[in-house]
Simulated assay, not measured.
Amino acid sequence: MADTDHNWRIWGERDPYYAVLTDARFRSGNIEENRQIFFESGETYVVHWLEHLERHFGGLARERALDFGCGVGRLTIPLSRQFKAVVGLDIAPVMLEEARRNSEGLGIEYLLSDDRLSRVDGGFDFVCSCIVLQHIPVTRGLAILRRLLECVRSGGGCLIQLSTKRNQSQWHKLGYWIRHNVLGGQVVMNLVRGRAADTPVMQMNEYPLDVVLRLFSAHGFGDILVRHDDHGGTETATILARKA
């Protein structure tokens, strides 16, 4: 199986903004002219979901927030305008370096992540992870999600986005399996698709929504909203919840 952490670090070195949002405008050669669009998308996202949370669940304390899989700071930066203290976590040191440059003067704390979130101390009023868990194998991802839910303070909110189903042809499914499970398969499939041989894989995983929701319930989240979306054949669930 492909090493998703290793591949993410490579993406961070080669094309960090595109790795966060797979849009040609955010390729390394295009990002400077589209940087404002990139970060405005994060601002809109954060404001929308915080308003949605408070509209449904009531006011939220604004002391401390956590962004898991923060990348270059797309969501972390707008969170810093909503909370007194913000922590961003990512597995790729290069992503963290870029996020720090983007956040200069904002006082955001960026930390190297691991599966236990071992560098994180204390609780948070808001925890989010968006377009991240889908790139992590399900068993690992569920363990990370468990830790994220543990980090939410009583009365705090949580926003988690993950993929639940990939609707692909048999050919695409076969190619995906070869890339991730056959020695040299990634190189071969890159060449077949006209890409550079060493292009890293961006793994996509399907999370069982019933298992995920049981985790929320087990960690004291009695109020839960779920939004379903279809992104070109990849179905996702955005989960907004409040801890009792």
Rank of each mutant, 00 (worst) to 15 (best):
G59M: 11
L60Q: 03
A65S: 08
L66W: 05
D67T: 12
V72Y: 06
R74D: 06
T76Y: 01
P78I: 08
R81L: 02
A85V: 05
V86P: 00
L89H: 03
D90P: 07
I91G: 06
A92D: 12
E97G: 12
A99Y: 05
A99V: 08
R101M: 00
S103F: 01
E104Q: 07
G105Y: 02
G105N: 02
E109R: 10
Y110C: 04
Y110A: 03
L112D: 04
S113I: 09
D114A: 09
G122Q: 02
S129P: 07
C130V: 15
L133E: 09
A143F: 05
I144M: 14
L145F: 09
R146D: 15
L149N: 06
G156I: 12
Q161G: 15
S163D: 14
S163W: 00
T164G: 05
R166S: 12
N167P: 00
N167D: 14
Q168D: 05
W171H: 07
G175S: 11
Y176W: 08
I178F: 00
N181R: 07
G184R: 09
V187I: 14
V187N: 05
V187G: 01
V187H: 12
N190S: 03
V192H: 00
V192N: 01
A196G: 13
A197T: 05
V201C: 13
M202F: 13
